[in-house]
Amino acid sequence: MFGRKKSVTGDRVAAAPAEPADSAPSTTGPHDRSSVGDVARYYTDLGYGHIDLGSLVIGVPKGRDLNVALDPNGQPEFHVVTSVSRVIPRAFAAPKSAGQWRTMVAGMREQLEAQGAEVTVVDGPWGRELVAAMPGAVFRAIGVDGHRWTAEVRIMATPELAEQAAEEGREVFAHLMINRGDGPMPVSEALPLTIPDEIQQALVKAQSQLAAQQQAQAYQQQMAAGQQGQAAPQVRPQAAQNQAPSSPQAPASTPSPGQAQQQPGSPSRRDAGAMDRLRTSDDL
């Protein structure tokens, strides 16, 4: 991959030492960012686009889209999407000793089962994978412990496409880069992301729209409670005129070699309710 190329005529070229693979670690990822000499080259060699979020670098395979959305707590999360899957990478601070991912799986299983999901834990390439089935949706969590960090992807799909979605999620997971940093952090706390300015501006707008929506809903509930069955006048605050969707999204720019085509990645509307119940970031 990094050695001398053969000539276009097909003539043999004298053997030469391969170039140092300073952009490609010898092991399967997720990678500690310190093990990659040239981050941009690493993804270029794969034919991926990528976005650098400081503590987390996400590679975007050709033909996929990258969206940024607000989680239920109003915090940004990045989704790698196709028509088959929605993959959400995350990274957490962890102790030096391994075992945090095992604990996370146990906690997710308990909470998902309490919500009525059918949950199994299966063996995958990195070890334990949690799979939760609900009507109309399948949720899969893949994770691994690194050096003082734990990396995870959460994968959402419809039941008929769950296996294909799992492979798409593993492909993203294998090429994540984590930058834990040297400072102290509480165990299991999500590593802070550095959001590019363009995306940050879009997120501020989305957060304002979400706040307006919540204010409008609260106003309507107060009006309904105050009228006690009487016909209330159709009066709404100006903010209610431009309500944002429940999960506002803004495009994230992900340049890739050849400007890869972008494909729609949202699950079908008939599955939206179940998918939303499974996607909650801090409730699982």
Rank of each mutant, 00 (worst) to 15 (best):
M1I: 01
G10F: 07
R12C: 00
V13I: 09
V13T: 05
A18K: 09
A18H: 04
T27I: 07
G29K: 07
G29V: 07
V36H: 07
V36T: 07
G37R: 02
G37K: 05
T44L: 09
I51P: 01
V57P: 01
V57G: 03
K62P: 00
G63R: 11
H79G: 03
H79E: 14
T82G: 04
V84A: 08
V87P: 06
P89Q: 10
R90A: 14
A91K: 03
A91M: 03
A93H: 15
A94C: 03
P95N: 15
K96Y: 07
G99Y: 14
R102K: 15
A106E: 11
M108R: 15
A114W: 00
V119L: 10
V119G: 03
V119Y: 08
V122T: 08
V122N: 09
D123M: 03
W126V: 01
G127E: 05
R128A: 15
E129D: 12
A132V: 12
A132S: 12
M134F: 14
G136S: 11
V138Y: 02
V138E: 04
F139V: 09
I142D: 05
D145L: 07
D145M: 05
T150E: 00
R154H: 06
I155T: 14
M156P: 01
A157G: 10
A157R: 10
L161A: 12
L161E: 13
A162D: 08
E163W: 00
E163Q: 12
A166K: 12
E167A: 12
E171D: 07
H175T: 08
I178C: 00
G181S: 04
D182Q: 11
P186N: 04
E189Q: 10
Q200F: 01
K205H: 13
Q207F: 04
L210G: 14
A212F: 06
Q213W: 02
Q215V: 05
Q215Y: 13
Q217M: 14
Q222V: 10
A224L: 13
G229F: 13
A231S: 08
P233R: 15
V235G: 01
A239H: 02
N242T: 09
S247C: 03
P248A: 10
P248G: 12
P248I: 13
Q249A: 09
P251V: 02
S256Q: 12
P257H: 09
Q259I: 07
P264C: 04
P267G: 03
P267S: 05
S268N: 08
A272W: 08
M275E: 06
L278N: 02
L284N: 13
L284S: 04
